[in-house]
Design a protein around this nucleic acid. Structure first.
Length: 107
DNA sequence: CAGTTGACTTGCA
DNA sequence: GTGCAAGCCAACT
């Protein structure tokens, strides 16, 4: 049977379901996975994420995009996400609102 | 096996 | 609101 340690596998499933024009935080995803402490592992998984994964919709808790990947900002803008002048996304309006049950159905 | 790293979060100043 | 330090866990060296 599959290993339960497929942290990245679950993370991919969630990120894959992020709707266009929406963003999610690493902590948000980790929380949905049931391990809010593993927020770093989410980012680690994103770094190793496959190309089909819309990891550009994943940002940190302040709305900052991934370091070393400034182009992520442009990708989000193309989906309708508006950035502030400080380089942060307006999480107040673009944070992905999803319930635990929505995720449970995906897993 | 032990130490370091990191696309994070929270707490405090 | 901004900045620094601590905590946390998996993967890498």
């Amino acid at each position: 049977m599959k290993k339960i340690s497929d942290f990245s596998t679950k993370a991919y499933r969630i990120v894959e379901n992020i709707p266009s024009g929406r963003v999610a935080t690493y902590g948000q995803i980790a929380l949905l996975l049931g391990v809010p402490q593993c927020s770093r592992q989410v980012g680690q998984a994103m770094r190793n994420a496959p190309p089909y994964l819309p990891c550009h919709r994943v940002v940190n808790h302040i709305g900052r995009v991934a370091p070393g990947w400034p182009e992520q900002r442009r990708l989000l803008e193309a989906e309708g996400v508006v950035f502030k002048e400080n380089g942060n996304v307006d999480l107040k309006h673009f944070i992905w609102r999803v319930s635990q049950q929505e995720i449970a159905a995906l897993l």
